[in-house]
Design a protein around this nucleic acid. Structure first.
Lengths: 112, 112
DNA sequence: CAAATACTTCGCCACATGGTGAAGTATCAA
DNA sequence: TTGATACTTCACCATGTGGCGAAGTATTTG
């Protein structure tokens, strides 16, 4: 890859690209503060694998971890998702607005 | 990685995780139907690199390519972005709605 | 203190990405 | 037909997952 530094948005989208990580986020939405083991159990994930996913999510700023004794509770942090959504919003007009623009777009393609 | 098959959403988020690819999508929004070379030029990308990015974008369903003679014009396809946004919408309440929920969330964290 | 629990880190492996230059193919132009 | 143009594919490299078992560290618990 040779990507020595990546932007916040790069990391956010990359973190969201894995189904296990999306499942983690969905679960945390329902049950904030779950521990690492509790997160791993239903996902049939060993702890080392879960650690890597949590590292990716934390790098992207999508979770925070707080340690209490020997257990770690994990919490959602949605700000990066808001920014990802802001980016996508740029394209909202393509499916949200009237079809005028789409028609114009298609017609332009047919020009020589 | 050992990911033999990935879902449409996996591919969409993965495609969006690269700044060059996001730049391509932004550019196509302004100027639909650009050719491969035209896309590559301002991004300081060699053609082989651009080809790979376009392959990733096409796999994710984010672009379509139509060949006319020896030139290929590239077009946006926004449906996958709409779906990505639908997924993110689930979290919208965290930043969009009243702060009640956030307060409840924070207070829950302080419980023993 | 000893044992169990909950993470954490450490190799190790396979594979996709992101980039390159070089070579190949297909069209268009002269 | 010969060149130039526009892609396309190939071979190669470095790196970041994504997964595992095994070993290590830190806290509780008995």
């Amino acid at each position: 890859m040779v990507k020595y530094q990546s932007s916040a948005m790069d990391r956010t989208f990359a973190a969201l690209a894995d189904p296990t990580r999306r499942a983690i986020l969905l679960r945390l939405e329902q049950e904030p503060g779950l521990s690492v083991s509790e997160l791993a159990r239903p996902l049939a994930q060993k702890l080392p694998g879960m650690m890597k996913h949590l590292d990716v999510l934390a790098d992207a700023g999508l979770i925070t971890r707080t340690k209490a004794g020997r257990t770690v509770s994990v919490h959602l942090a949605v700000e990066p998702m808001r920014e990802a959504m802001e980016w996508l919003k740029r394209y909202e007009r393509f499916w949200n607005a009237s079809l005028d623009r789409l028609v114009a777009f298609v017609e332009k393609e047919d020009e020589p």
